[in-house]
Design a protein around this nucleic acid. Structure first.
Lengths: 247, 247
DNA sequence: CTAGTTAAAGTCATTATGACTTGAACTGAT
DNA sequence: ATCAGTTCAAGTCATAATGACTTTAACTAG
């Protein structure tokens, strides 16, 4: 390997790039979208995500993450949100960059660098987005074989979601405007895949205190009506832009 | 805005992209490299990073992050590591993707999408990489104005580093093969920018136990010789690849 | 009116944490 | 050789956080 001159290394113009390679890598955007839906058998809330069927080669007829090209007029984040809207009709409660995947052989013909986002939407939204021949919702765990490296991408998104959930406030982005404490607990149980003591969970939530109690109660249940709460924190994803836009 | 057919949304070939825009965005790689060096005044270890002087427009004569084009033969991670080697001669102890920056006006002429990595190197390595006219080390806090959006990028890398430090094991990647517990504490103090109780810190380290005691002691000091320890955990960065390579 | 169920709050033992103290080991000056 | 000064290393103690469990309140179905 030849060692370049140190000072010139940062001047990477498009001309420089095309000097080195005949075919530059293509840029793509994809999004992993999570929503909570009742499981088929138990009825308890579980994690689902929408996939689209590929109608062309490569990987024709396999399921893949929704995505599309990077539109020139938008930032990466805006392009991802617009793409989500165009492909699935969903408006995310939470949207954050996941990772840039750039392995050499992700796509058989040309090299593709995918900048992948992940999003959370409410169940109500997920219900609205009706399924078609080529768009279906799947349970996030135990997915079949997907196109490209999308199985790995989903697994990584799941890992990130569980990580953030552990000590964050994203759980609320899977819920509506108001919610009961039991619903928050069900979100945690669905994502972390384990049962949680209701009493202790309640105690922690109330002292963490990015939620406030309303004076309303959820009616219509079979038992004692639970109080409704409201989330008082931020509504956007953690990304560099939001960090520095404040000052 | 025209709504694309749902099923076709994932088929993003290079042809598709160039249909929509005359000039596709350029792809670039940059890296934020942190090392510990003694402060000029206090002598205590502080965070430093190397920058390179731009010798062309735009932002001629301003300092910028080291980087370069995406080489065709390497994965993103490998390309970042190779770039590091070529521009600064440094071999990182830790290398992880930071973020893909794709704002519309990051570079004045053409749109540039930068995939940025961040790295940790040992102080001994940092000392070896001698400074030149166009490569200099700077203190990570209170940086002057840099080229492009590199100030924001450095701030974000600092934020990630502090986050990871809080409950992780990356501190050891800034140290050598063996180290004293006081040195680990100095890393934490330098990164988190606050003093830490030595006794309590020692207790936590020993029960966290991704380190093991050697039977050697650091000689040559002015006082009681401290025991040397060795890190027993992983040596690579957290990235999707390493997560799934195990099974 | 009662049994059954969930909501909500409280109890208690165990563990983790922060502030502080004590003793051990070494150097350099007297 | 002794002692002052410094750091290493371990220990103490009060407080806070956590997990397992119990108790009481509020509602519905029968």
């Amino acid at each position: 390997m030849d060692r370049m001159a140190v000072a010139g290394a940062t001047s990477f113009s498009a001309a420089n790039i095309s000097e080195r390679a005949a075919l530059p890598p293509a840029l793509a955007l994809s999004t992993v979208i999570f929503a909570l839906r009742p499981s088929e058998n138990s009825g308890r809330p579980t994690l689902w995500l929408p996939l689209v069927r590929r109608i062309r080669e490569p990987f024709k007829d396999l399921w893949a993450l929704p995505g599309g090209p990077l539109t020139q007029a938008d930032s990466l984040q805006d392009a991802a949100a617009r793409n989500l809207q165009e492909t699935t009709g969903l408006a995310p409660n939470y949207l954050e960059q996941l990772y840039a995947f750039g392995g050499l052989h992700r796509s058989p013909s040309q090299r593709v660098v995918s900048i992948v986002y992940w999003a959370l939407v409410q169940s109500t939204q997920a219900d609205l987005a009706q399924e078609t021949e080529n768009v279906k919702w799947f349970r996030a765990d135990g997915l079949q074989e997907l196109a490209f490296d999308h199985n790995e991408i989903v697994d990584y998104a799941l890992w990130r979601l569980r990580n953030k959930m552990a000590y964050g406030s994203i759980a609320y982005h899977l819920l509506g405007e108001t919610f009961t404490l039991a619903q928050v607990r069900e979100v945690y149980e669905a994502v972390l895949n384990r049962s949680i003591d209701p009493a202790n969970f309640r105690r922690q939530l109330k002292q963490a205190a990015h939620i406030e109690a309303t004076d309303e109660f959820l009616q219509g249940g079979k038992h004692r009506p639970p109080r409704l709460y409201r989330y008082t924190g931020e509504r956007q994803g953690e990304q560099p832009g939001s960090l520095f836009s404040a000052h």
